[in-house]
Write a protein that binds this DNA or RNA. Structure first.
Lengths: 224, 224
DNA sequence: ACCTGAACACCGTTCAAGT
DNA sequence: ACCTGAACACCGTTCAAGT
């Protein structure tokens, strides 16, 4: 005979105590595997084997959670950039690092466009500001140059995260781009659209992103 | 004595029939007055004096509604740009027009970053492509330049819509920027951060945006 | 102090029933 | 064909009750 004082709990109890770090870690795991739509307080508390209200003891709301998760990714990227490098090279390395991080974690691209003064974005401003200074750009010229670069990076990141990133580089990709190009040319007889559509078929997002960074660097130098 | 066959309907019946145009119009009105958070299917159908399911006869879902509303704003902006103008001037006019539209309708800034091939974004690509062509930029150089400019514009728009735009240019603004600058300098002893914070106090988002467009134009010319 | 999970006040979308 | 509004399957957040 079996004595039971209540229903068997569905989730085994945690072995480690809850903490902000553990919660953010689990948030990143869910975002990476299930995407932004998959991040719900219910999914998060299920994974952490805890009650729904528990996370509100460590974090004020879901927005703070997303900002903390994005900062977790971005701070790792920035930690890898060598600050002794040639300034232009440092800017290219930094930009590409952010681009690649967003390619791997598309939800970061969306998140960075949501709140300009969240920790991750301030980190990027600073990461761009240092090499610009070493490039000899000072005062309001540095503000302008920094703002231009940061907004370009964040804009490319968001567009890439929402679009081509979702299509793998494998078999499905050329098909997807061809369908898109066909749709454009059917809707619009303009030869400009036709030429753009043709280029779209063989373009690479990463290369195009880096070309944009170089246009910027050229403009900053010419501007002086 | 009064005969009633049922409860009095809470909303008076519409005088005009429902249509996609009327629905998009009402969507823009709600977004402008109540913001993105205020746009719910319930609020929309209440304003249109109809049942919740009615809009699904004209529109597939809420995403399509947001994309159509954004396209309504952007197409008006692009219609005003004079295509006979000097190409560089046309690019500045177009960029500023989009920036100002997003300053007035911040929800557009958020929406444009959500889906790269929505009608409003394709319209912007084309609007930038034409003057670039007239500037003598062709082939993959035009792809690169166009992508750089569009991503810069959309990135600036999203950041502006989410941030300083929310603070009016009146009395509250200097206070807000001073508080932000103070927060930065307290958290970080780096002199670079201090200098940036000082510049932040007196910076103007619109001017900084235009300075970025000029850096781009300089870079495109230098790049050639 | 920290955690639990039911309850609350919402969502977008569907669909049988009406006109 | 178009519309209605109840019903469905979710949300994020709160809070009394437990340990």
């Amino acid at each position: 005979m079996v004595f039971m004082t209540g229903p068997v709990p569905r989730n085994p109890r945690r072995t480690t105590a809850l903490s902000r770090e553990r919660i953010v870690e689990a948030t990143i795991e869910i975002l990476d595997t299930a995407g932004e739509g998959g991040l719900t307080v219910r999914a998060l508390t299920a994974r952490l084997s805890t009650g729904r209200g528990a996370i509100y003891h460590h974090v004020v709301n879901k927005d703070e959670l997303l900002a903390a998760a994005a900062d977790g990714i971005i701070s790792r990227v920035l930690a890898e950039v060598d600050s002794d490098e040639d300034p232009k090279r440092a800017i290219r390395t930094l930009s590409l690092g952010i681009f690649q991080a967003i390619d791997e974690h598309p939800w970061v691209g969306t998140q960075l466009s949501r709140e300009p003064w969240q920790p991750a974005v301030v980190r990027i401003w600073k990461g761009i500001g240092v090499p610009l200074q070493r490039l000899g750009v000072t005062g309001s010229a540095r503000s302008d140059a920094g703002s231009a670069l940061v907004n370009y990076i964040l804009g490319s990141a968001a567009q890439h995260a929402a679009g081509p990133r979702r299509v793998p580089h494998g078999a499905a990709r050329p098909e997807y781009l061809r369908a898109l190009a066909t749709k454009w040319t059917q809707e619009d007889p303009d030869p400009l659209v036709h030429e753009t559509a043709a280029l779209l078929r063989e373009h690479d997002d990463r290369d195009q992103f880096l070309a944009g960074v170089d246009i910027f660097l050229a403009g900053i130098t010419a501007h002086r």
